[in-house]
Design a protein around this nucleic acid. Structure first.
Lengths: 250, 250
DNA sequence: TCGAGGTCAAGAGCACTGCTCTCATCAGTT
DNA sequence: AACTGATGAGAGCAGTGCTCTTGACCTCGA
């Protein structure tokens, strides 16, 4: 479809480089990403890949955007499929983030782990895709607020934070008050913490046989603190959350 | 003091290597840590440092233990200085963790950031120092529970988690029930999330003029959800937390 | 049709890395 | 005072990122 055959070939090669890099990222990590190794696997001499990628950092940027896009797509789809209830949408978002992170730990680390020293993702190429998930979270909470699905239990926040919170509200055209934005920020960071703990295996010496159950519990607590009203109708099929509360034996 | 002058010299050199490595870690990051560079700065040829450190990974291990120890010491001191009230001790712990992390971002990343691919800290050398902070947190909560400073608001947890929670309780000789252990785990992960967000600069596009205020707010919310009863007596001097609630003008 | 301009891969090369090996030296131990 | 083991130096191997030059190819327009 796009223009000249040369341009298409170039696009193809660039895609190959990205996908090889994606696999190498998973195998050796961002810091050990080697353009030479990518070239080897591409069946080409090392200097040739510099025709397509300016340097190692640009390959990283390619992979960052690639990862943000895939994560954003999966979260969007999951939230979409979750229906209209804010609590369902919130849970779908958290589950989708966790599922992707567990499946793609190295790419998750690239996005949300410790920064790669000496490398800063160029804002103009990453902020767009990079803010999709947190924006969606904010919109879900905002929607819950507008539709009355949110209990207003958050406490007032320090005035120093007001300008920053107002900036967020303006940028996303939110209707929620400052304290709810702050609560959303905290929910986001708590979600991030829970996922990182599981993905990075940093629960300390303790291990959990069923990390998903622990994650469920944590997300539950986050939702409660957000003021997201619990659903009264039964959970969707496949989600056996809290089965133990209603044994319904016999 | 310790034995032979040779052993003392060796200890000295090892200390020098550690402290040079600590600085390099802050400058170039864990992945780019170079034994050659350390050797250069030590004024010695590269092969010589291999007399002291088996390989790059062992230098990392040295730095991990070093960082855990310093963090543990600072948190211990802060909690100690905070008195006996569980809420104060909890807050002191969080502030000390944040302060150290903000001051030593690369060392924080080494401990709690994305794992360095291909490197796994040997458990027998790191778990001891590595669990000091989370253990202290558990003991603070346990103490609050025993002394009645903890509101029992946590909800019951899924039975699948019971064995793991029991293991934690047994190992630390806690008195708290499963649901409080689970809440503590979540508090720990939420704290980790908040610190990581700030240290790794991953609040997305939003920036906060006063990250400490945001952190205060988040910790407040974590404390509330833990059920840590608020203190009625005035906050210690220097902590102007929530001043805006009691304007007390004129 | 044919030539010019752009595109691409190859290869050599520089400076760096981790790590191993050998060899000389010098200091602590006996 | 003699010995021996810890130590540092140096060479060397295989790998890395990145640059530069060279030669081949392809595409497009005259």
């Amino acid at each position: 479809m796009p223009g000249t055959p040369r341009a298409r070939a170039r696009e193809q090669t660039l895609g190959d480089i990205t996908s090889i890099g994606r696999r190498h990222l998973g195998e050796v990590g961002a810091a050990a990403l080697s353009l030479r190794a990518v070239a080897r696997e591409l069946g080409v001499v090392s200097s040739a890949v510099y025709r397509y990628v300016a340097n190692r950092d640009e390959l990283l940027t390619l992979l960052v955007v690639d990862a943000y896009t895939e994560l954003g797509d999966e979260v969007d789809a999951a939230v979409e499929a979750a229906g209209t209830a804010a609590a369902d949408r919130f849970r779908a978002l958290t589950q989708a983030v966790r599922a992707w992170a567990v499946r793609e730990p190295s790419r998750y680390a690239l996005l949300y782990g410790s920064p790669v020293p000496g490398y800063a993702a160029p804002a103009e190429r990453t902020t767009g895709e990079g803010t999709r998930v947190v924006t969606l979270l904010a919109l879900i909470i905002d929607g819950a607020w507008r539709s009355g699905e949110l209990d207003d239990t958050a406490e007032p926040v320090a005035p120093v934070l007001a300008p920053d919170l107002r900036a967020i509200r303006d940028q996303l055209s939110l209707a929620v008050p400052d304290r709810v934005i702050a609560a959303t920020v905290q929910a986001w960071s708590a979600l991030f913490g829970a996922v990182s703990f599981e993905v990075f295996g940093q629960y300390g010496p303790s291990t959990f046989a069923d990390p998903a159950a622990l994650f469920d519990l944590v997300v539950d607590r986050i939702a409660v603190q957000l003021g997201l009203r619990r659903l009264t109708h039964p959970a969707p099929a496949g989600s056996r959350r809290k089965d133990w509360r209603t044994p319904r034996t016999g």
